[in-house]
Design a protein around this nucleic acid. Sequence first.
DNA 1: CGAATAGCTTACGTCCGATGTCTTGTGGTT
DNA 2: AACCACAAGACATCGGACGTAAGCTATTCG
Lengths: 243, 243
Amino acid sequence: MAITDEAIEKIKDMIVSGVLRPGDRLPREADLAERLGLSRNSLREAVKALSLIHVLDVRQGDGTYVTSLEPSVLLDAIGFVIDFHRDDTVLEFLEVRRILEPAAAAMAATRMAPDETAGLRALLAELGKDPSVEDLVANDLEFHRRIAVGSGNQVLCSLVDGLSGPTQRARIWRAITQEAAVARTLAEHHAICDAITAGQPDVARARATVHIAGVEQWLRDVPVWAHPSVQRCVGPPLRSVSP
Amino acid sequence: MAITDEAIEKIKDMIVSGVLRPGDRLPREADLAERLGLSRNSLREAVKALSLIHVLDVRQGDGTYVTSLEPSVLLDAIGFVIDFHRDDTVLEFLEVRRILEPAAAAMAATRMAPDETAGLRALLAELGKDPSVEDLVANDLEFHRRIAVGSGNQVLCSLVDGLSGPTQRARIWRAITQEAAVARTLAEHHAICDAITAGQPDVARARATVHIAGVEQWLRDVPVWAHPSVQRCVGPPLRSVSP
DNA sequence: CGAATAGCTTACGTCCGATGTCTTGTGGTT
DNA sequence: AACCACAAGACATCGGACGTAAGCTATTCG
């Protein structure tokens, strides 16, 4: 194993074992490097890797700190990872979203406070007549995110939020190529919101399932993959998608 | 934004835009560094970070390659991240597992081939009388993993597999401190296996839910957190867990 | 007296060049 | 044709030097 990977493991062990706790500050790079028995350059590679996944927080001129290590912080990095997936795997992600989001909606229906549900309604109301595609996508993302937050489970919230990344583009294309989808999506959002507000977990779950399944079905049926605008978004060589 | 972070973004863009495709080889460090306008050291930090999350695969003496970028490969990294979570968040992870695993079990009941279900039964049969704790945990993990694989969804599989990390230790403690849990767990495994083999998704889902919920309930009720063996596993200062 | 500021200290950010180590492919030998 | 030794290419690691930014301190001025 490379010396840098060993350093990653050692730092990880220090955190997992409790030697370093959330918020703690690490020794200076020079000192830590000496203590771990490697050069500062190699140590920096390890620190960089750990900071990419939000385990460490490096502040120039100050020092390097352990983050809060909360699920929301750590799982936040999956959004970054998700971006790398090719579009022919979107359906797999949607399938998982169809599992997670209905559950989140049901939990939200039980746990969300009145002021939160009010905020959810307000969010949907923000969209005026004839909104832009960007507004639609942003509103859509925020809507799903708030429900995830409303579930009261950080892990679930982070997963739902992170998994939305790859399908965000799909939403854009959907809005672009299928006009009717806009009204339908908004109607479905309102329906889900109503169920949550009414405190009906079963209804919220079902409506969320219908919502996601609708997108899934649309992606499965329509050969968007061949659409020119998609080619532009995805980049030149598009691998076999729907053989 | 730091120059290294820019390099990470640029490499990411090259991959997302299709300039670099799965399996492609990157230019030599020296060349790529020059092309991106930074030093080789800084570039190496970027590459190291991307290789930690399995986006790049660096082979000494050979070169640096883009991985297959399959969901199973990329999401594999979440297992690493999960290890950092403190034990007071285990319940949140279990709650998500209670959502995902029943869904996986139901899907497996529909999709798993006869030889796969046979393998699942064989796995459970491998555990002889009076198995060691290590065997139990390993068998348990493998059992859940195979069901996840059987769901036919890479993303779901990776998530289920990754989320098992933090609760693995909980399983160990459970086995240690509660003798009766061993027989109960095995019985539940057999019941789930039977439902999958019989092709009954609803039953499989329900039994998986019961299985996870049982663990959850156990963790919620029993003050394992105060148990000395846990302190040893977790490390010195245990933050407030159940206030 | 207190607040603003200039400057010092410290720690991370970046770079350069040299050397070690590993993989691979080549070419010669048997 | 099979095998081995060597050389080339690429990553691994190191040490040191210099740049940049944040934080603390002491000075200064209202």
